[in-house]
């Protein structure tokens, strides 16, 4: 297969950036999208052009590192996949593909397609944890039974990989899906409920400080989220935050 790629090149945070056009051939349909970029990069190195910088690590859809905005969609046209899980068979021979970084004020561009998502870490630091120290004397893991449906829902929320596709997709660059997934995970578990009030206040506060947009409930995040995190989590966070705001002093 052959493709024409329009790739965003930007030398650093200060650079203005521009689109560049490259041709790649020798692409086979069972290559992943990132392997296609590998082919491009080997070619660019041979042509004395700096290879395209992009984030990636696990290449199996779990680390959340890869982050490309492909043909106007976060992680491209596939559903339930990260960029590394997108395969070239989703495209037709001869297609032109536009590749951009995830864009948001809170995700400054480092170089080319690589962005800084440390804002997500800071949101977690604000309260995305249960305050227990390491200890060999905690209650037995089976001491508290947890209703299966709650445990399952908590798990579903906890599968967020922190990729930022929700932010990249959202017309407002809102981080509600990400933040609410963590809030929900803990809100659904007895272990997390102890600090639930403080948690939601702090995490929302941090989310706002980072400069993410507001939630218009368009639902785009849920569609593009590679892990299928549901916007029910956003509703749950709205509910938690409202009840806390109404009841704290």
């Amino acid at each position: 297969m052959k493709f024409t790629l329009n790739v965003w090149r930007q030398n650093g945070p200060q650079d203005k950036g521009r689109m560049e056009t490259y041709q790649v051939d020798q692409v086979s349909d069972d290559m992943s999208f990132l392997e296609m970029i590998d082919v491009l990069n080997e070619q660019l190195i041979h042509q004395n052009i700096d290879p395209v910088v992009f984030d990636h690590d696990c290449r199996e859809g779990i680390c959340g590192m890869c982050s490309m905005f492909i043909n106007g969609e976060a992680h491209g046209p596939g559903r339930g996949v990260t960029t590394c899980q997108l395969h070239m068979r989703e495209f037709s021979d001869g297609d032109t593909i536009t590749i951009e970084p995830f864009r948001a004020k809170a995700f400054p561009i480092i170089k080319d397609l690589m962005v800084d998502r440390s804002a997500f870490d800071r949101i977690i630091q604000a309260g995305g944890f249960v305050s227990v120290n390491t200890s060999g004397n905690l209650p037995d893991a089976n001491a508290t039974r947890i209703e299966k449906s709650h445990a399952d829902a908590a798990f579903d929320a906890a599968t967020c990989i922190g990729c930022g596709a929700c932010v990249a997709t959202c017309k407002n660059a809102s981080a509600m899906l990400f933040t609410s997934a963590k809030v929900s995970q803990f809100a659904l578990l007895p272990q997390g409920q102890v600090e639930a009030s403080e948690r939601v206040l702090h995490m929302v506060n941090q989310m706002d400080l980072e400069g993410f947009g507001n939630c218009t409930n368009t639902g785009a995040c849920e569609v593009e989220c590679p892990k299928g995190i549901s916007i029910e989590n956003i509703a749950r966070m709205n509910r938690e935050y409202l009840s806390v705001s109404l009841t704290t002093k």
């Binding site: 106007g72 407002n172 660059a173 947009g213 639902g219 593009e224």
Partner: peptide, 28 residues
């Protein structure tokens, strides 16, 4: 105010943005 904040949250827009792929027109 919300609309302004939302616009400010993405100062540099996408070259290609396929909003119709994931959200209905009126919500956008």
């Amino acid at each position: 105010v919300l609309a302004r904040q939302n616009m400010a949250a993405r100062p540099a827009g996408y070259v290609k943005y396929n909003g119709a792929a994931n959200a209905n027109w009126s919500s956008r």
